[in-house]
Amino acid sequence: MSRVQQPTEQLTEQPAEPPSGRRGFLTKLLAICCGGLATLPPLAAGVWMFLDPLRRRGAAATFLPVTELASVPDDGIPRQFAVVSDSVDAWTGFAAEPIGAVYLRRQQGSDTVEALSATCPHAGCFVEIESREKCFRCPCHNSTFMLDGRIVAPSPSPRAMDGLDCLVAKNGQITVKWQNFYTGIAEKVARP
């Protein structure tokens, strides 16, 4: 027993079965194509934009001034230095901001400097120097390296610390070729 009357106007009988045969097939095909075509532009445009980062490249690896020779004591103990550079993050331009860090090491009486990236080749943490144990150690998974960057076995890291090209100018200015490398693989491959 209903409280209100159902609508009195009768719906015209609809065919119970969808159209079959060639016309039916064409209708279905068209319906799917139209619907698909309508949905495609936003979807494709969205994917296109979402994948934009794939065509972004980092700044080309260039030699950046880091410090001068007098700041690197010639005792064979690496010291950490900030790498300062102009940089761009999407829409923001940074003038002379620290963008990362390197370890510089000078042997006794030597005028050449070795540079190591401070990024752990295992998973990308910031490797620290253990002055007491005279080694590098990553605070994340305990990858350990000798002061020249070679691996101390057994280590979770698949390779030695990444060396960076380093130049010492006549006036003592040290420049380092700033690069990032893929982590977690045995080979040292620079990121694009």
Binding site: F50, P53, L54, R56, D89, A90, W91, T92, R191, P192
Partner: peptide, 15 residues
């Protein structure tokens, strides 16, 4: 590629 798409570029930042 997955890493670059998720990170939003070659380096960590706004994106």
């Amino acid at each position: 590629s997955i890493q670059q798409v998720v990170v939003g570029g070659p380096d960590y930042g706004h994106h």
